[in-house]
């Protein structure tokens, strides 16, 4: 067991898979000699060499297209798109190419690749370098979408993504890179499509993803300490496949559902979860499901503004308290 940052867990996760399988290759902008703009790939170039860890031009379409061509013909590429906002300039591959090639070819074409990207707000970078784009990806049949909240999950879910035969969008949260967590020694391999109950409780279920997970846990502690409200916190971890059974099971115990989403409100993943719970567990509910999200606005750059728009532990706690006590 060792304490590791989320950033170092990315390095260890990639290294674990590259050590295991020579067909795992890695490409992206500034990822090799420079060690990544977030220093999340430091040392990989030195460890695995210039044939396996490759710097690319600023050409996001070339990066994702090349990853796909390599995946179709036998490699297991990991491609980095520096900021998830840049998905917009290479979305053809994410929306049209990776996820549809298998279906359109009646199963002839395979596309086993991972796109890693820096997602989410908190860095005061403004509206084009801070977005949470998980919903852009979740809506596309054929993709898998993963977003870890802690160092151990980074390694385990990254390993599962690399070993998965389908295209996986792997969303690393930029604000989590410096955070630390306990990580066991040795190989770690997790399972896609599994949510985790991180805190048990009887009064309400709070579903959260990535940076919102530690915030939901902090809110739960405040609710317990100040108001005696006992919340269960579910780390959704994987939007596709979605572990609805863990969420439905939790709601069956607590009878209330809250989602905490960093994305702007419309068409957020929480809406899908609320819809599933309303369809399949309506009579388990003692009150309306509530979504806690960033408002439907572009993200502002200034710290004082950005801090207000993202769901905070206080806003989560206050929303849950008001809803349960009304």
């Amino acid at each position: 067991m060792a304490e590791l940052t989320y950033r170092d867990a990315v390095i260890r996760g990639i290294a674990q898979e590259m050590s295991r399988d020579p067909d795992v290759v890695f490409l992206g902008e500034d990822v090799a000699k420079a060690g990544g703009v977030f220093k999340a790939t430091v040392g990989l170039y030195e460890q695995f060499g210039p044939l396996r860890v490759r710097d690319t031009p600023i050409s996001e379409q070339a990066i994702l297209g090349a990853a796909m061509g390599a995946a179709m013909t036998g490699l297991k590429p990991i491609a980095e798109i520096m900021f998830s906002d840049f998905f917009a300039v290479c979305f053809d591959y994410i929306a049209n190419e990776f996820p549809k090639s298998r279906y359109m070819s009646n199963g002839q074409v395979k596309c086993p690749l991972v796109v890693r990207t820096g997602n989410g707000a908190g860095s005061r970078f403004g509206a084009q370098h801070s977005q949470s784009v998980e919903n852009w990806c979740m809506m596309i049949p054929g993709l898998k979408v993963v977003a870890p909240s802690n160092p151990r999950d980074v390694i385990g879910l990254l390993a599962a993504s690399v070993r998965d035969p389908d295209p996986v969008i792997f969303l690393e949260h930029k604000s989590l890179y410096p955070t630390k967590g306990e990580v066991p020694d040795g190989e770690i391999v997790d399972t896609l499509g599994t949510a985790k109950v991180l805190r048990s409780g009887k009064d309400a279920t709070i579903c959260a993803l990535a940076l919102m997970v530690p915030r939901a846990l902090e809110a739960a502690e405040k609710l317990k300490a100040k108001h005696g409200i006992d919340c269960e916190v579910v780390d959704v971890r994987s939007l596709v496949p979605l572990d609805t059974q863990t969420i439905l099971g939790s709601v069956a115990r607590t009878h209330r559902l809250f989602t905490v989403e960093e994305n702007p409100r419309l068409c957020g993943w929480g809406a899908e979860i609320v819809s599933i719970v309303a369809d399949e567990a309506f009579y388990d509910l003692d009150g309306p499901p509530v979504r806690i999200t960033t408002p439907h606005i572009p993200l502002p750059a200034a710290d004082i503004l950005e801090d207000i728009v993202l769901p905070t532990p206080d806003r989560i706690a206050e929303t849950v308290r008001r809803s349960l006590q009304s």
Binding site: M68, G69, M72, G74, L75, N96, M104, V109
Partner: peptide
């Protein structure tokens, strides 16, 4: 025949990737 691509330009980078695999292996 590794596919026919209906989005103009999409397959040029994809062909690069297949060629990268050949080069690497």
């Amino acid at each position: 025949v590794m596919g026919s691509y209906a989005i103009i330009g999409a397959h040029l980078p994809i062909a690069c990737g297949a060629a990268w695999r050949a080069q690497y292996k």
